[in-house]
């Protein structure tokens, strides 16, 4: 009987005070939501936590009466869990979890993203070498590559600026990269940090 009821009817019943309706909704969508969360976080405990937080938000919203039946119930719940998954990864990035091991190095946990002095010098050298290599390219290819890589322009913007089609710009970029590789191979240049 309950299984035949639409989600929207169950939501309405729950808002009217029928707690049983929530149980039906949770059990009905348990598998879909759990699998979705687990496929992203690959951790059972975190999946349980995110599932729980998702439904706490659902319960609060429904009890507050701010839920609007514009979309469907399941996509709405999935969207909440999706946002919580993103929050989880953001939080983890800010506070990396310490995974204990014998050769624990504190700097693996508190290290910043910046390169050390030696690596910065090598990177600067590579950037300079690359600039010289780019100068060796034919003008049309160099123009597209500089706009794309150094000026961070989209191919649409490049095509508008250079007066060629997007496909031509893409082709020039492709040849620029092929030619750069050829020059690098020919002169045995090593561009690694």
């Amino acid at each position: 009987m309950e299984l035949q009821m639409e989600d929207s009817e169950l939501v309405r019943d729950y808002i009217s005070g029928d707690e049983k309706a929530l149980e039906v909704l949770i059990n009905r969508h348990n598998q879909r939501i759990t699998s979705f969360i687990y496929s992203k976080v690959l951790d059972r405990d975190i999946t349980e936590d995110i599932f729980q937080d998702t439904f706490i938000k659902v319960i609060k919203t429904l009890k507050k009466g701010t839920y609007s039946e514009e979309g469907k119930f399941l996509p709405w719940v999935m969207r909440i869990s999706h946002n919580l998954i993103i929050d989880h990864f953001r939080k983890n990035k800010r506070m990396p979890k310490f995974e204990g091991s014998d050769d624990f190095n504190i700097f693996s946990v508190i290290g910043d993203d910046k390169l050390n002095a030696e690596k910065q010098i090598i990177k600067d050298q590579i950037d300079t070498d690359l600039r010289y290599l780019v100068e060796e390219l034919p003008d049309d290819q160099k123009e597209v590559l500089v706009m794309r890589i150094y000026k961070d322009m989209s191919f649409k913007e490049i095509s508008e600026n250079t007066g060629v089609s997007i496909n031509t710009a893409l082709g020039r970029m492709r040849y620029a990269l092929i030619n750069l590789r050829k020059i690098i191979d020919k002169h045995n240049i090593v561009l690694t940090n």
């Binding site: 598998q31 687990y38 690959l42 349980e48």
Partner: peptide
């Protein structure tokens, strides 16, 4: 790393 279909 097995399937996990339902919360407890």
């Amino acid at each position: 790393q097995t399937e996990f279909n339902k919360v407890c």
